[in-house]
Design a protein around this nucleic acid. Sequence first.
DNA 1: AATGAATGAGTATTCATTCAT
DNA 2: AATGAATGAATACTCATTCAT
Lengths: 204, 204, 204, 204
Amino acid sequence: MPGGGNRNNAGGDKKEQILLAAVEMFLDKDYYQVTITEIAEQAGVGKGTVYEYFSSKEDLFKESFSYCADLYLQLFQQHLSTAAPVKQTMSDLILAHLELLRENRQRLYLLFNERPLSLQEMQGWVIEKRRKILKGITALLQEGIESEELRPELDVEMAGRLLLAVNFDVIGGMVVLDDQDVSEEKIAGLIDIIWNGVGSNKHV
Amino acid sequence: MPGGGNRNNAGGDKKEQILLAAVEMFLDKDYYQVTITEIAEQAGVGKGTVYEYFSSKEDLFKESFSYCADLYLQLFQQHLSTAAPVKQTMSDLILAHLELLRENRQRLYLLFNERPLSLQEMQGWVIEKRRKILKGITALLQEGIESEELRPELDVEMAGRLLLAVNFDVIGGMVVLDDQDVSEEKIAGLIDIIWNGVGSNKHV
Amino acid sequence: MPGGGNRNNAGGDKKEQILLAAVEMFLDKDYYQVTITEIAEQAGVGKGTVYEYFSSKEDLFKESFSYCADLYLQLFQQHLSTAAPVKQTMSDLILAHLELLRENRQRLYLLFNERPLSLQEMQGWVIEKRRKILKGITALLQEGIESEELRPELDVEMAGRLLLAVNFDVIGGMVVLDDQDVSEEKIAGLIDIIWNGVGSNKHV
Amino acid sequence: MPGGGNRNNAGGDKKEQILLAAVEMFLDKDYYQVTITEIAEQAGVGKGTVYEYFSSKEDLFKESFSYCADLYLQLFQQHLSTAAPVKQTMSDLILAHLELLRENRQRLYLLFNERPLSLQEMQGWVIEKRRKILKGITALLQEGIESEELRPELDVEMAGRLLLAVNFDVIGGMVVLDDQDVSEEKIAGLIDIIWNGVGSNKHV
DNA sequence: AATGAATGAGTATTCATTCAT
DNA sequence: AATGAATGAATACTCATTCAT
């Protein structure tokens, strides 16, 4: 078997090592401000080694991004596949998201939400991931309608988008942009709004 | 209106000329992809002239950004300061936002929502603008509660954030990311959700 | 007239300055061993300046090469367009070539004769120049046949190629590779061979 | 023939294996475009193994070059050592050369004729080989004079150089640069010129 | 005030070579 | 002896910024 085979018992470690270092850097600075040298240093390997495992900076970025995006995807999918009542699930999602943001550096939000504009391909990347999540949420809502938890006349697509926005923009914004403490109370208030709307009955 | 009269290129309006050119470019490409040379060409001035009016590329970007942000601010403030019913205002805001996105190139959204991440200062910039808008919306909602259009127990901050998210994330996302046609019907559905919530009465 | 016009009274000097420096370097070392930095230093300009006038290293090389090739072309064309007897012209060509090699650094020979193999395009370049020269020589020989200076049954193409080879390979080789002094006597001997051939009459 | 027997890859012939792979590659691409990795792959050995047998890329190139040069040398020496008439030998040489070029990839010509210029050492290498060949040719011509096949007043050195040039520049040029089909007729014409010269008797 | 020629710091990437296994 | 993972020196090219005119 010429050329040997899989990378020792050290495993694919080097690659992961580099990937994690890259994620670390890309969470801190944007694509253009992160240098391969930095990543290599952060990973504790030589510059050339980076290129043993990733064909280019762009490739490395994509993989870093994908790695982070998958964290999100997993989070959502995990919570969306429960049998819990919809209201509960919505709440759980928000809480889980909050935790994810807190655990994995707030900037995860940024990486996901605010990609390097110009790497056009990245755009499609993000959009794709968003669609997947949106689809999951939409399905959840559809079930909610069928189980009569939700109003039958609901525009599930828009409701789904709103829930996505709540997670990314409201929660993400509070944690990351405003660096706020998001209390349980706040979340309850938010869920209340989503569930019951803002309108009073007096004027309707 | 100082100086009065219409502004030909005879006037001292080189600065505005350059600024508008910069906005044009920054709406098309991201910070790192726009070059001073391009901006100068677009503005029809020499490269050196750019530096007569702006101390650096970063400075020029900030001003360009601010210029665009103000478009938003104006849009919101204009609609938030009407005496119309809150529901109407919310709807108007969304419609106006839609139009703004369509008119001013979709990328306005991107410029505003997705700044060159780690120009740290930019962050504060965005946050600041968001807060101002949020404040306006919150005030609107507070009035709505007082006029009993809105539910008295509403967490106005969260409701405000949600409305912001609806504009930026839901509408912006649909127009820009998904390149979707946002029908009146969709908006009606969205307003319905915001107003009445997603929950059915059966299970509550 | 926006943008001004031709480069000062300094003339296209900078460009020529750089070109000559590049020629200098490319005559000394091969394409891959010459660095842009060196050329810039040699030319006494900044690295960036090189790129103001030449779009890439390859471009600069091509122009350098072309510059040298034109020296050859001129040399040949100048001598080929005289009304002198063919024999005289052949001799003149060789002498002129010798002088050119001595004047313009021997390595001119190398640059022309031994291009960087791999820049495929270069190959075509050289071939093209060779063809032009060959055509000129062939025409000369044809005239020689018509004026009955040369044998009527001569294969002019082959004779032309032989004359080219004499110049490039024999003369060039002696001067450059063997660093030999090429005496008038040697040249007379060479012309004699070309004119009368090597064969004796005894055995024919 | 030390060791005798045929050489499988079982033998210690790794070195030859690598050398032949290198020749293969260097005939295809120039020094700078051939990588050690490629050579190793072509040879079916590990990259490190190359360095077991050759101290550096340059060393490997030199040996590859020498290997090819020896093909030439052998070709010439083989034909130069016959007892055939000089005219016949000249013709044979050209034909043999043609065949060699056709068989061994045209690029043999390039490898020999156009070394990576400024590996200065290479220059000497080529010069050395050329001298050896030239010496052989000169001896042949001297014999030709003695046997009265050739004109007694011939400058044998120049005649030798001319024959070398005919082989390398005329034949090589036609085959490689101009990618021409070299007919027997053309060769006959060439031999005719060498033998009888270009001059008519009318004007002499 | 206006210009654009000149500049050089900054960076992704390649590849010969080493050396631990 | 054989390997190939790891390495970092080396280099073309970009572009914000300056400054002489």
